[in-house]
Amino acid sequence: MKITKLLATSAIVAASLAFTLPAYAEAESDDPIIMVQNNWTSQLVLSFVVGKTLEGMGYTVEYAPSDSQLQFKAIADGDMHFQVEAWEGSMKEAFEKAVADDGMVDAGTHTAATREEWWIPDYVLEKCPKAQDWKGLDACAEIFATAETKPKGRFVGPPADWGKNYAARIDALQMNFKAINVGQAATLWAELQSAYDRKEPIVLFNWTPNFIESKFKGRFVDFPKPEKGCMEDKAWGPNPNATGDCGAPHSGWLKKAAWSGLAEKYPKAWAVMQKVDFDNAQIASAALMVDVDGMSPEEAADKWIADNSAVVEGWKK
């Protein structure tokens, strides 16, 4: 009796394997293409746009959520296949490491340019009219101070793991600010929302394109334009004794990342992925449908495809 039971169990296990294995091997091109999904609006909508386009071509598409840093390891391993938004600002290090280690490939750059810089809501200009310029901002640093940063102003900086060093820039420009790093992007928005509701002066790290533009009125602070000399030549820029005394580039890249096996496994899909290209206005309109009109990212993607059918058809050619 015992032996028969044992046999029964092992037979069931073996059979389940046997049945799924041939199906697995046979349906190679039927395997789903896995799109990475992060937790911000534009990325979600755009990944649905690409995913639905591929589905329209007959592919099976699945969506896998991932942390925006761990995703590159997953793509390089082929566990996930395509990331539609890789940001120079926050992901450069991990992106380049994954490409260098093989497994992940750079699937091209979007037309959209990204910018990340210090950012102020417009009402700050009432209290500090020249705040758009870094010198003007520095002159009224005190209005941004909190108890623990006094007399220095408080700059709410990006998450520490994004590889930015704003403390160094503040030192190089000899500004009267202290950088407080947050732990995640949502923290930035909570700070902004709270200050915005109370019209309290705040200067924080922000980037474009992103949903903040459609909800809050504000602008980037202008810093000395970065040129080649800034990082290498101490004499360059406002501070003759320091390097790094300049702002961030005004047009950072927004790339697509893909698993290196795609080209071989799904050649047609790979061709489409390489052609996929969004500009700033398209990204903003995609995010707007979710952030302002309250659609779900999936609905927004359907609408975006309907509104931009010419663009989508262009990718398929």
Binding site: N39, W40, P65, D79, F211
Partner: peptide, 20 residues
Amino acid sequence: ASMVGAQGLGHKLLFSLQQL
């Protein structure tokens, strides 16, 4: 678990927080 790819409520929750 949704940070390494679990679908469902966890992923949605992080997205909602990101959206404030």
